[in-house]
Amino acid sequence: MPPPGPLVEVRAATRTHGTVQVLGPTTLTLRPGEAAAVVGPNGAGKSTLLRLVAGKDEPTSGDVRVLGLPAGQARLRRREDVAVLLGGLSAYPDLTVAEHLRLVASAWAGRHPGPGVDAALAAAELERVRDQLPGELSSGEGQMFALVTTLYRPARLVLLDEPEQRLDARWRAVARRLVAGALDAGRALLVATHDPDLRADLALRGQEVELAAPGPR
């Protein structure tokens, strides 16, 4: 049986804003169940690479394909297969934490593999704030809520931009567990991170994409 086709193919993709190259030539292939940690200093283009893969931006040169389609088209046609946490969670201000998960589970109906809402909240150690609105959460709780909700919706490919942001050591460990759980479930993960532990975990399950430091401007 041939190996499954790649979910993400980035071939020598670059991105330039005006005269500034914000992403140098980058190549990457990601198959189902694999992980890739995108690492590099600030300004190296980690978020830019994720935006290209999410189809929210176009490469200046090179090619970015997701699920066999150009990334821009995949964003419109295969949005059910790609979960994205880039620049904040798409939450409703008048629903509580638990109600968001319940809404996601119901909206995906038979396609949602579980776990149940209570189990997901317990795994993220968010039971204490289950009845709070997003606007009432602390910054760390908000970040953990965003992560668990993004991972709670079904998807073949998950893009996470620095999921460890604003999390303390205990919650970073929880975040790593959640990411590992998503990999165990057979998803492919592309994660930009500064967290060395998460980077090591992801490298064990796939690859590291190290982006070069930005040059002088």
Binding site: A83, V84, G87, L89, S90, A91, Y92, A107, W108, T149
Partner: peptide, 15 residues
Amino acid sequence: AFAAQPQPGALLPGS
């Protein structure tokens, strides 16, 4: 609220 989301409807299935 849907329109104000960073990626409207990112958590939900369908178009």
